[in-house]
Deep mutational scan, measured.
Amino acid sequence: DETGKFLVLSLYDYQEKSPREVTMKKGDILTLLNSTNKDWWKVEVNGRQGFVPAAYVKFL
């Protein structure tokens, strides 16, 4: 199980638009929880879990 094993870097600021999403700032290091959807990845940032656009992050 690779859940929570990968870190990704936020390339852009992102403001959550729904309760299922999370806000991140450019340069944030996020824990990747799920990347099965090619468009939206589930991450943990600042103690919160939610989705961010996959195009806004990259693997470290």
Rank of each mutant, 00 (worst) to 15 (best):
Ile29Glu: 03
Leu30Tyr: 08
Asp13Leu: 03
Ala54Lys: 06
Val57Asp: 01
Lys38Leu: 09
Gly27Ala: 01
Trp40His: 02
Lys42Gly: 05
Phe6Asn: 11
Trp41His: 02
Thr36Lys: 12
Ser18Gly: 13
Lys5Arg: 13
Asn34Cys: 13
Ser35Arg: 12
Ile29Asn: 02
Lys42His: 11
Val52Ile: 10
Tyr14Cys: 05
Asn37Val: 05
Tyr12Asn: 10
Glu2Trp: 08
Asp28Arg: 03
Val45Pro: 00
Pro53Gln: 03
Leu30Ile: 08
Tyr56Trp: 06
Thr23Lys: 03
Val45Asn: 10
Asp1Arg: 03
Pro19Met: 08
Lys25Val: 09
Trp41Ser: 02
Ala54Phe: 02
Tyr14Ser: 02
Trp40Cys: 07
Ser35Phe: 11
Glu2Ser: 14
Arg20Glu: 12
Val22Met: 09
Tyr14Arg: 02
Asp39Met: 12
Lys38Tyr: 07
Lys5Cys: 15
Asp1Cys: 15
Asp1Ser: 14
Asn46Ser: 08
Lys38Cys: 11
Gln49Trp: 07
Lys26Thr: 06
Gly4Ser: 13
Ala55Cys: 14
Pro19Gly: 09
Phe6Val: 15
Phe6Met: 14
Asp1Thr: 14
Trp40Asn: 01
Phe51Tyr: 15
Lys58Cys: 15
Lys58His: 10
Asp39Thr: 12
Gly4Glu: 12
Phe59Lys: 11
Tyr14Val: 02
Asn34Thr: 07
Asp39Ala: 10
Lys38Thr: 10
Glu16Trp: 05
Glu44Asn: 05
Trp41Gln: 00
Asp39Trp: 15
Val52Asn: 00
Tyr12Cys: 15
Gly50Phe: 04
Phe59Asp: 07
Ser35Thr: 11
Ala55His: 13
Leu30Asp: 01
Tyr14Ile: 02
Leu11Met: 10
Asp39Ser: 10
Val22Phe: 12
Leu11Trp: 04
Asn37Gly: 10
Lys5Trp: 11
Lys38Gln: 10
Glu2Leu: 14
Lys42Trp: 15
Gly47Ala: 05
Glu2Arg: 11
Lys17Asp: 06
Lys25Ala: 09
Leu11His: 03
Val8Arg: 01
Ala55Met: 12
Ile29Met: 07
Pro53Asn: 03
Asn46Ala: 10
Val43Tyr: 00
Phe51His: 05
Thr36Leu: 09
Asp13Arg: 02
Gly4His: 13
Val22Gly: 01
Asp13Tyr: 05
Leu32Gln: 00
Asn46Tyr: 08
Tyr56Val: 06
Met24His: 01
Asn34Ala: 08
Thr23Leu: 03
Ser10Asp: 01
Leu33Gln: 03
Trp41Leu: 07
Leu7Thr: 08
Leu7Lys: 12
Leu32His: 01
Asn34Gly: 07
Arg48Met: 08
Lys5Asn: 12
Val45Lys: 11
Lys17Gln: 14
Val52Thr: 01
Glu16Thr: 08
Asp28Pro: 01
Ser10Asn: 03
Pro19Lys: 10
Gly47Met: 04
Glu2Cys: 15
Tyr56Ser: 11
Leu30Gly: 08
Glu21Lys: 05
Gln15Trp: 11
Asn34Ile: 07
Asn37Lys: 07
Ser18Asn: 13
Thr3Asn: 13
Thr36Cys: 15
Leu11Thr: 06
Ile29Phe: 06
Gly50Asn: 01
Glu2Met: 14
Phe51Ile: 06
Leu30Cys: 13
Asn37Thr: 06
Thr3Gly: 13
Leu7Tyr: 14
Tyr12Ala: 13
Val8Cys: 13
Lys38Ala: 12
Asn34Phe: 06
Val8Pro: 00
Ser18Met: 07
Lys25Phe: 10
Glu21His: 06
Val45Ser: 11
Gly47Ile: 02
Met24Gly: 00
Tyr14Leu: 02
Glu2Val: 14
Lys42Tyr: 15
Phe6His: 13
Gly27Thr: 01
Val52Tyr: 01
Glu44Ala: 09
Asp13Trp: 03
Asn46Cys: 09
Pro19Val: 09
Leu30Asn: 02
Leu32Cys: 11
Thr36Glu: 14
Trp40Thr: 01
Asn46Phe: 07
Arg48Glu: 06
Thr3Tyr: 13
Pro53Ser: 03
Gln15Gly: 07
Asp39Arg: 12
Glu16His: 08
Phe51Asn: 03
Pro53Lys: 04
Pro53Asp: 02
Arg48Gln: 09
Ser35Ala: 14
Phe59Ile: 15
Glu2Lys: 14
Ile29Tyr: 06
Leu11Arg: 05
Leu7Met: 11
Arg48Pro: 02
Arg48Thr: 07
Ala55Trp: 07
Val8Ser: 02
Asn37Arg: 08
Thr23Trp: 04
Val22Pro: 01
Asn37Trp: 06
Lys58Met: 15
Asn34Ser: 13
Val22Trp: 04
Ser18Pro: 03
Phe51Leu: 09
Thr36Ala: 12
Lys25Trp: 08
Lys38Pro: 13
Thr23Glu: 03
Gly27Arg: 02
Trp40Met: 06
Val52Arg: 01
Lys25Met: 09
Lys42Ala: 08
Thr23Ala: 07
Asn37Met: 08
Ser35Glu: 06
Leu32Asp: 00
Arg48Gly: 04
Lys42Cys: 15
Ala55Arg: 14
Lys25Thr: 09
Tyr56Lys: 07
Lys42Val: 13
Phe51Arg: 02
Lys38Met: 09
Leu60Ile: 14
Thr31Arg: 12
Ser35Cys: 15
Pro53Arg: 05
Phe51Gly: 00
Lys5Asp: 10
Tyr56Pro: 00
Asp39Phe: 15
Asp28His: 06
Asp39Lys: 13
Val57Ile: 10
Trp41Val: 08
Tyr14Thr: 01
Val22Asn: 03
Gly4Leu: 11
Leu60Tyr: 12
Val52Pro: 00
Lys58Asp: 09
Asn37Glu: 10
Tyr12Phe: 13
Leu11Ala: 06
Ala55Tyr: 09
Asp28Thr: 07
Phe59Trp: 09
Gly47Glu: 05
Thr31Val: 15
Trp40Pro: 00
Ile29Asp: 00
Val52Ser: 01
Val45Ile: 15
Lys25Gln: 10
Asn46Ile: 03
Ser35Gln: 10
Gly50Thr: 02
Glu44Thr: 06
Val45Thr: 11
Gln49Arg: 10
Val52Leu: 04
Pro19Trp: 11
Leu30Pro: 01
Glu44Cys: 11
Phe6Tyr: 14
Lys5Gly: 11
Trp41Met: 04
Gln15Glu: 15
Leu32Lys: 00
Thr3Phe: 13
Tyr56Ile: 07
Tyr14Lys: 01
Leu9Ile: 15
Tyr56Met: 12
Thr36Arg: 10
Lys25Glu: 07
Lys42Ser: 07
Arg48Ile: 09
Lys17Met: 11
Glu16Val: 06
Asn37Phe: 08
Gly47Val: 02
Ile29Arg: 05
Lys17Cys: 11
Lys5Leu: 12
Lys5Ala: 12
Glu21Asn: 05
Tyr56Gln: 06
Trp41Ala: 04
Asn46Trp: 05
Asn34Asp: 15
Trp40Arg: 02
Leu32Ile: 07
Val57Asn: 00
Leu11Gly: 04
Asn46His: 11
Leu7Arg: 09
Phe59Gly: 06
Gln15Leu: 12
Trp40Gln: 02
Gln15Pro: 08
Val52Lys: 01
Tyr12Asp: 07
Lys38Trp: 07
Glu44Val: 07
Val52Asp: 00
Gly4Tyr: 12
Ala55Glu: 11
Ala55Lys: 15
Gln15Thr: 14
Asn46Met: 08
Val57Tyr: 02
Gln49Lys: 10
Glu44Ser: 09
Asp28Gly: 03
Phe51Ser: 02
Asp28Cys: 08
Asp13Cys: 06
Arg48Cys: 06
Tyr14Gln: 01
Asp13Asn: 08
Thr31His: 09
Ser18Val: 04
Tyr12Val: 13
Met24Trp: 02
Leu60Lys: 05
Leu32Val: 12
Gln15His: 13
Glu21Trp: 04
Leu32Met: 05
Ala55Thr: 12
Thr3Cys: 15
Val52Gln: 00
Lys38His: 10
Leu33Trp: 04
Val52Gly: 00
Gly50Val: 03
Pro53Tyr: 03
Ile29Ser: 04
Ala54Ser: 14
Met24Tyr: 02
Gln15Val: 15
Glu44Gly: 05
Tyr12His: 14
Asn37Ala: 08
Val52Ala: 02
Leu9Tyr: 11
Val52Phe: 02
Arg20Ile: 12
Leu11Phe: 05
Gly50Arg: 01
Leu11Cys: 10
Lys26Cys: 08
Lys5Tyr: 12
Leu33Glu: 01
Leu11Pro: 00
Gln15Tyr: 14
Leu32Arg: 00
Ala55Phe: 09
Phe6Trp: 14
Lys38Asn: 11
Tyr14Glu: 02
Gly4Pro: 14
Val45Met: 11
Val8Asn: 01
Glu2Ile: 14
Thr31Ser: 08
Lys38Val: 10
Arg48Trp: 04
Ala54Cys: 07
Thr3Met: 13
Lys17Leu: 09
Ile29His: 05
Met24Glu: 00
Val57Trp: 01
Glu2Thr: 14
Leu9Ser: 05
